[in-house]
Amino acid sequence: MSEADRTSEEIAARVKALESMLIEQGLLTTEMVDRYVDIYENEVGPQLGAKVVAKAWADPEFKARLLQDATAACAELGIGGGQGEHMVVLEDSDEVHHAVVCTLCSCYPWPVLGLPPNWYKEPQYRSRMVRAPRKVLAEDFGYEIPDTREIRVWDSSSEIRYWVLPQRPAGTDGWSEEQLATLVTRDSMIGVAPVGAVS
């Protein structure tokens, strides 16, 4: 590996190597590093997902393309790369709500959604969501899904990364895409929270 020209992947590997060596020496624990990561977890990556959702709400043709091939539709907006490839967008409706989990590696389309929160990477989140999604959404996230809506839980992997297109809230007729985007949160695109309230 050349000293002068490290790729992003090489530097990321170097960071992992240094962390694992310091943990082995007993200087640090993963939790100590996580503690500082948590403070900034909402600030990694462009978090462009909100922009994509707002455009899909405002432009039915774009929405159709997004649901057909999310990777290509995001590329139209110059969004992609990193772990964003092979994305599938799941559309919420009055009948069905979608939520996303991951098995082992916290596969996550971070160019679109930002950095995954630590709870997303915990095995408990996944196992509980698979067993009792309605209960977990209500109790852990305060997100009550009416009994009349089916809940589907999707497993992201390195081959397909899912994220959720929430329903456009009522009372937003005539809103610009910029205004709409302010309602879209990371958690609403994972499917564990509603979009922001219309004020």
Binding site: L104, C105, C107, I151, R152, V153, S157, I160
Partner: peptide
């Protein structure tokens, strides 16, 4: 150690695509 990390395939236990929901809680 850095070379070791680079040589470990990403997500080596989890590269299968999952095309259907893993759980459904019906209405």
């Amino acid at each position: 150690r850095t070379c070791d990390v680079l040589a470990t395939p990403k997500n080596r236990n989890h590269h299968e695509p999952h095309y259907e929901p893993i759980a459904v809680d019906p209405a």
